[in-house]
Each structure stands twice: as C-alpha cells, then as structure tokens.
C-alpha cells in the first residue's frame, strides 16, 4: 500500500461536489422521492394507530428517521455505483492512469459520496424542522449526524464492491431492485418491525440499515428498540467492513 495522497482525495471530493451542484434535476429528483414518502405516508396514516409506534408519537414523526435513512441508503449506493458511469464514459481511465494510489481514489470517492448524501439528508431534515418536527434534544443531532455518516459509508462500500464486478449499466437496476429495495423494506424505515413475522425479524437483524434507522430514532426521537450505543457499535463494524470490502474489490478489478 502506498501513501495516502491528500491532494488527490481532495480533488476527487471536489469533483463529486461540483457534479452534484450542477446536476440540478438529479438533486431535485433525489430529494423529491423521500419528501413524497414523508408527506404522503405521514398524511395517509395520520389517524390510524400503527402497532409498535411508541405511544403518544405521531406516525409522521416516527417516519422521519426512516426517511433520512432511506435517502442516505439510495444516494450512497448510487455514489458507490457511479464508478460504472465513469467506466462507461471513459473517465475512469483518466483516474486510473494517474500516479495516485488506489486507496486514495477509494477514499476520495467515499469522501465525495458521504458529502453528497449527507447534504441531501440534511436538506430533508431541515424541511421536516420547518414543517414542525422537533428533535427530542438539539444536541442529539450530533450522534444523529454520526449515524448518517456511518450508514453512508456502509452503502458506498457496498456500491463500490458491486460496481467493481459489473461491466455495464444493466447491473445497476439489478442491484437496486434485488439488493437495495429489500434492504430498505427490511430495515423498519417505514413501519415498526413488531408487525413482522419472526423469520423476517431475524432477517432484518442482518440488514445494516436496521441499526442505522434504529440509531437515528434513538438519537432524534429518544425511542428505539436497541440501545443507542449497541446500534452505534454494530453499524460502525458494518461500515468498516463494507469500506474494506469495497476498497479491496476496486483494487482487484481490472478497471479499464
């Protein structure tokens, strides 16, 4: 392993940021879906009592951490998978031929991905606050931010690992439909896991996003299934493992 080159990481990060800010339609598109979920589900289930939602808590409030998790899940996986786009449009060669260690390239991508997906999540959080949402404790936004970062790392790593194995764009939809959507529904982002049959509840324990969403609920709402520190520990492990697997697959692939 060669040294980590700060300037290369910085410029890779800067590129992601510029691309995000320039792709206005993509930005609006990725913000709209979570906001629709939040708005319509929140309104639609306003009067129904949903088993498992803590007593005295409105469903729309219960939903907010789940939607934040969802937004980060999608934008981070997308950021990891965007290697496929760079390969398709040839730009990956420009990156790969530069005298920059593969580790720096992966770190630059992860830094860029975290920034763009946290940016989107924070916009959603801000909109919820404007609409009247109040976190249980403003200081607890900080651990919330930590959870968002860890969710992001986990799924950028996963995206990178998939992208390193895929040669074309077809794989993208496959990953989205057969990996990302199941992870999303299993995580309890939309409803409490209480209503799941036992086998699904067990399965959901293997979904990193479960701990991410639960941790976000612990931080923002003060109500969660598992203690905050347990969520944090498991999610940190997932994030680390996923980044290592992602970096390793990227390093291994003949990427041109």
């Amino acid at each position: 392993m060669k040294a980590i080159q700060g300037i290369a990481i910085y410029v890779l990060w800067l590129r992601e940021l510029k691309r995000l800010l320039r792709a206005k339609s993509r930005l609006i598109g990725t913000l709209l879906m979570p906001l629709f979920f939040l708005g319509f589900l929140g309104m639609g289930f306003k009067r129904s009592s949903i088993p498992g939602v803590p007593a005295g808590m409105e469903y729309s409030v219960f939903l907010i951490p789940g939607i934040l998790g969802m937004s980060i899940l999608f934008s981070s996986t997308f950021a990891g998978l965007s290697v496929i786009w760079d390969r398709e449009f040839g730009f990956l060669k420009e990156i790969m031929v530069a005298p920059v260690s593969r580790v720096s390239i992966v770190l630059g991508r992860i830094a860029g991905g975290i920034t763009t997906s946290l940016f989107q999540a924070l916009v959603i959080l801000l909109i919820s606050i404007i609409m009247g949402f109040r976190p249980q404790n403003w200081l607890m936004l900080l651990p919330g931010l930590l959870f968002m970062t860890l969710i992001s790392m986990t799924f950028i790593g996963l995206g990178l690992a998939f992208a390193s194995r895929m040669r074309d764009m077809q794989g993208f939809n496959l990953v989205m439909n057969f990996v990302i959507f199941p992870l999303f529904f299993l995580s309890g982002a939309l409803f409490p896991l209480d209503s799941f049959p036992t086998w699904l509840r067990i399965l959901s324990r293997f979904d990193p996003l479960t701990y991410g969403v639960d941790g976000l609920r612990a931080a923002l709402l003060g109500k969660s299934e598992l203690p905050l520190l347990l969520d944090l520990g498991i999610l940190s492990g997932c994030a680390l493992l996923s980044v290592i697997i992602g970096a390793w697959s990227f390093e291994k692939s003949e990427s041109i």
Binding site: R15, F89, G90
Partner: peptide, 13 residues
C-alpha cells in the same frame, strides 16, 4: 501523458 482512443473527459466539468 496519454490520450485514450475513446474520450475520457468529465463532460459536466
């Protein structure tokens, strides 16, 4: 320095 056969530019920059 290398110029590839297929374009390798970021067109959004």
């Amino acid at each position: 320095g290398i110029v590839f056969q297929e374009p390798a530019l970021d067109v959004k920059l």
